[in-house]
Design a protein around this nucleic acid. Structure first.
Lengths: 195, 195
DNA sequence: CCACAATACGGAACGTGGCTCCGCATGCCA
DNA sequence: TGGCATGCGGAGCCACGTTCCGTATTGTGG
């Protein structure tokens, strides 16, 4: 559900001010997320957008809805990059590595996103689900291709790998001594079938 | 600092009721952590212990202090297990693997601990520091031994490895599809020098 | 152009949780 | 037993999420 229809062709027309406010909120949220992370206080976001808190909840009932709306494009781009990479890379495992790099780039630059994705807070459940809906199929395809080519172990599920990578991104960029990419490289090395 | 003296020989005698309350609080906190995780509400812990909230803050000014006090023994045990394993194992890398297993066992059974350890919440800074103080030296020794024996890559710091393992433990046991141990096994496989 | 219903808005108000502060109780020692 | 250092309780303040409803705005049919 929810993973296929992202082009509301049948325009459920809304009032002009509503659309205006929705856009203001998206802009404000994006800005707030940048400086204060994805759990920036609701009131702050509302203030930035010049609206009342009620307006946020009307447009984005849960925080997850707001976060998804802000990052939807980038997540979709990552999803679409999968097949492209698979087609353009020398080997499936190279495509997989590049794709994961993309994913990491995304997570690492979004303050608090990786944390939120793994949080058990029910507020973020939908966020978790959205990421999985979009990315697990892509990752599965890359993983399958690499496994079929005998390049990686066949006993790792896309879900697990994605969560692992997501987890390793937590706290990246907050501590110079912690290099998430380095560990993810290790993880992928461990995934490889060694001669 | 704070990592070496854990036997207050010079007894800074406190009042009897103070010591009693401190113990009640430790018991109550341990129980609360078990059911509600390490961020169980302060008021709940106080109620369980039959004291006022002020008493908690007097004995344990920050949440980290309380968590540390509750888990101190187990962390110390993990620290002490390092050298023991190194002496009793066939190879340094086997000792390392076993030791990490121990660490994972600990983290996985403590609801919310792994999350707290990586949280950027300043409340938990001291917790993070305590774990590192105690465990980084031990892990460094294991890692050095294994690297010297040519069993693992020499370019991974104990700090990084511990944080990576800690991160991978986040959310373990909350989702049957996510097996932290499996990924950590992968990580360690990637750490190994392959023939 | 106007009236009026549908739609959307704002922000006061409530619940929860962390943390502080100070008047009061308690243990300790002489 | 008296006096006082030490420790205690919990009311109260703040920050934040979330709800709710009186009011304002929009767009449409007359």
């Amino acid at each position: 559900m929810g993973a296929s229809d992202h082009g509301p062709q049948p325009p459920a027309r809304k009032r002009a001010d509503a659309r205006r406010n929705e856009q203001s909120l998206l802009d404000a949220a994006a800005a707030a997320f940048l400086t204060a992370g994805v759990d920036a206080p609701v009131r702050d976001i509302a203030a930035r957008a010049g609206v009342g808190v009620g307006t946020i909840y009307r447009h984005f009932p849960t925080r997850a809805d707001l976060v998804i709306a802000v990052y939807r494009h980038q997540v979709d781009a990552a999803a679409e990059a999968g097949p492209t990479l698979l087609a353009s890379s020398d080997t499936p495992s190279a495509a997989l590595a590049q794709w994961i790099d993309l994913f990491v780039d995304f997570l690492v630059t979004k303050h608090g996103l990786a944390e939120a994705l793994q949080s058990d807070d029910t507020t973020f459940e939908a966020l978790h689900a959205y990421f999985l809906d979009r990315l697990v199929p892509v990752c599965t395809r890359l993983l399958d291709a690499a496994a079929t080519a005998g390049e990686v172990r066949p006993d790792v599920a896309a879900y697990e790998l994605l969560r692992g990578v997501g987890n390793l991104c937590i706290g990246a960029g907050r501590d110079p001594r912690y290099d998430a990419r380095h560990l993810i490289e290790l993880l992928i090395a461990g995934l490889r079938v060694h001669p």
